[in-house]
Amino acid sequence: MATTDAGRRKPGRPAGNSNTRERILDSARELFARNGIGNTSIRSVASVAGVDSALVHHYFGTKEKLFAAAVHIPIDPMDVIGPLREVPVDEIGRTLPSMLLALWDSEMGAGFIAALRSILAGSEVNLFRSFIQDVITVEVGPRVDNPPGSGVVRIQFVASQLVGVVMARYILEFEPFASLPAQQIVDTIAPTLQRYLTGELPDLPAP
């Protein structure tokens, strides 16, 4: 029996319907908020959404891109964090805020700030916490884990400083801080960030 055109499906494109993408995103948000990014797999998101995991990959590619779409961040987080792998440890304290402020001050950054504002004002703050712990800490923490066991808290100190910059500059819009040149902010906070990453910190928790 001949196969009709209506019964054919283009090769390489998994089946889906108009609300499949949103169902996947809803499932991803639920699992990321509940379990964190590190403990959430593409397969588990697909299972909750009732679709094949190939369809999730088709729509979103990587788990990090799925997370970005779930929280409406207009950039793959690994586009920012990934390049840090090539940066010497003693330069991360300056490189990180230089990259982030350039992003946050850009047109694309406006979408990131809007997403962050929504997350902090809503019930999905666990998503933001998971991003810091499961993406940034996993990528950078092992490189600054000296003495052993200090990497996680070092990253959390850095996060506290950067979240403070976001709050003061973009959400609360303190003046004149909100209007300072980005380079002035980088020059001011970079030594502190580097100390958090590689300097001696008192009373660090035992590993």
Results as ranks from 00 to 15, higher is better:
residue 3 T to Y: 03
residue 3 T to M: 06
residue 5 D to N: 10
residue 6 A to H: 11
residue 6 A to T: 11
residue 8 R to P: 04
residue 8 R to M: 06
residue 11 P to T: 07
residue 12 G to A: 11
residue 17 N to F: 07
residue 20 T to G: 09
residue 26 D to F: 10
residue 30 E to G: 15
residue 33 A to D: 15
residue 35 N to I: 10
residue 37 I to H: 02
residue 40 T to E: 00
residue 41 S to F: 08
residue 43 R to Y: 00
residue 45 V to P: 02
residue 50 G to M: 03
residue 51 V to A: 11
residue 53 S to T: 12
residue 53 S to P: 08
residue 55 L to G: 08
residue 58 H to W: 07
residue 61 G to I: 14
residue 64 E to A: 15
residue 66 L to D: 06
residue 71 V to H: 07
residue 74 P to A: 06
residue 77 P to R: 07
residue 77 P to A: 09
residue 78 M to E: 07
residue 82 G to D: 08
residue 83 P to C: 09
residue 84 L to T: 15
residue 91 E to Q: 14
residue 91 E to Y: 10
residue 94 R to K: 12
residue 96 L to W: 10
residue 105 D to R: 14
residue 110 A to C: 04
residue 110 A to G: 10
residue 111 G to C: 09
residue 111 G to V: 09
residue 112 F to Y: 05
residue 113 I to A: 04
residue 114 A to P: 02
residue 118 S to L: 07
residue 120 L to G: 08
residue 120 L to N: 06
residue 125 V to L: 05
residue 128 F to T: 06
residue 129 R to H: 09
residue 130 S to R: 00
residue 137 T to G: 02
residue 139 E to F: 13
residue 142 P to K: 12
residue 145 D to A: 10
residue 147 P to H: 00
residue 148 P to N: 11
residue 149 G to Y: 03
residue 150 S to G: 15
residue 150 S to D: 13
residue 152 V to I: 07
residue 154 R to L: 15
residue 154 R to V: 12
residue 155 I to E: 05
residue 159 A to P: 09
residue 160 S to T: 06
residue 161 Q to P: 06
residue 164 G to I: 14
residue 167 M to L: 13
residue 171 I to C: 03
residue 173 E to Y: 04
residue 173 E to G: 05
residue 180 L to C: 08
residue 182 A to G: 15
residue 183 Q to V: 14
residue 184 Q to G: 13
residue 186 V to F: 13
residue 188 T to K: 03
residue 188 T to A: 01
residue 190 A to L: 03
residue 190 A to K: 05
residue 191 P to V: 01
residue 197 L to M: 00
residue 197 L to A: 00
residue 199 G to D: 00
residue 200 E to Y: 05
residue 200 E to M: 05
residue 205 P to R: 03
residue 206 A to L: 14
